[in-house]
């Protein structure tokens, strides 16, 4: 089976993650959608690595993974801070950007 199918799988996962970000109001679930999108990209990178027979794709996925870990830490920290301030983690609540 051609590894290109993994890329297609990655695309589908990416779309699901994007939909989660767009549709869910719970900040944690939306955040998990973001994580899913990152991992979909990782999957594509690894698949490309396999197709090219080079290790560099895996290394890139490795880097993405590291950055994603840092991002999770900061993101969850923000969620905690927001929760402390507002007693809610609904994404619809902080609407101060309203024009």
């Amino acid at each position: 089976m051609d590894p290109i199918n993994f890329v297609i799988l990655a695309s589908i996962l990416f779309a699901i993650g994007a939909a989660a970000v767009l549709l869910r109001r719970n900040a944690i679930i939306a955040f998990m959608g973001v994580e899913l999108m990152l991992n979909a990209a990782n999957l594509a990178l690894v698949a490309f690595s396999r197709m090219h027979g080079e290790i560099d794709g895996q290394i890139m996925a490795f880097f993405v993974l590291t950055v994603a870990a840092a991002e999770v830490v900061v993101g969850l920290g923000i969620i905690i801070a927001v929760f402390r301030a507002r007693q809610t983690i609904s994404l619809d609540e902080p609407a101060e950007l309203k024009g």
Binding site: V21, A95, K98, G99
Partner: peptide
């Protein structure tokens, strides 16, 4: 155009997508 600036993060994300 002000109406598009509804302050909802998800709306902005939708615009981006």
């Amino acid at each position: 155009t002000r109406k598009t600036q509804n302050g909802q993060v998800r709306s902005y994300a939708l615009t981006m997508v």
